[in-house]
Amino acid sequence: MSAALGEIWRNRIFYLFALPFAVLTILFGVWPIVLSIEVSFTASATALKPSPTWVGWANYATVLADPLFVASLGRTLVYTVLSVVANVGVALGLAVLFDSTLLKRGNLFFRLAVFLPVVTPDVAGYVVWRWLYDRSFGAFNAALAGLGLPAFTGLSSPDTATLSLLLAELWHHTGFYMIIFLANLAIRDRALEEAAVIDGADAWQRWRWVILPQIRPALIINTVYALIQFLKTFTVVVVMTKGGPNDATNFVSYYAWQLFDQGRYGEATAMATVLFGLVVVLSLGVFVFGDREAAR
């Protein structure tokens, strides 16, 4: 014990360096999570009081028995899968294209064009997209009409609202995954491709058997990042649809926020915990699956 204390005292300057970081991490990282889990076991009406009423797993039972939540969870999972595939797929395609020498000097311009939305404040981007889809103001339908094509119902119909959000989010996010692919492509071993050419491999074989295995790390990281990103889809819903029409875009984050806003703290935090568990399990799953695939 005293040995440990002695070590701490000898290294007190490092504790001093780490102190502000530790304070912020605990206050605004660890404490909120603990608090959230704690609140999820209390009755909403008493959640903010000094001595809340403990209700055990009641909030979790309520939440899991709530058909709206179950529907919302299913919707979130479908949206997440579609978005992960679309974003990572498009990002990979664009990275390969922009990494090739086919575009010569255009490369930087194209990268900037696709990456600019990543640093554009999401609220601003989604506000513009919301109006792009608008029936009377929007450029989208005006362009379709100009081409003689039928109108796109966009955010106003439950059938197309999800797709509309997906496209807007693709615009905002895919550039981020693209630069991770590009960074990975830049450090690959090009000599292997030359060797493959000498061995008579065609373009597809080089891509599939030489390049793709080398960008597996970026593929795994991007998939995990995208999973975390789209499981918690929120801003785009707030800006563009408010969960509608007909709950078609009412994803778990937004639903939880609505409950929180209504003072149903217990249920809202129970949903948060469920979603957190899902994020952890799915992310670990991708990592483990990716590792096993790599080991084969």
Binding site: A22, T25, L27, G29, V30, P32, S36, S253, W257, A272
Partner: peptide, 25 residues
């Protein structure tokens, strides 16, 4: 400390912000 930080950034951001309201309070 490092693990606490890593868990905090894994937590869905929007859902972390909600209990942060309680902390700020």
């Amino acid at each position: 400390l490092r693990w606490g930080f890593l868990v905090a950034i894994m937590y869905p951001y929007m859902l972390l912000v909600i209990p942060v309201y309680l902390v700020m309070y």
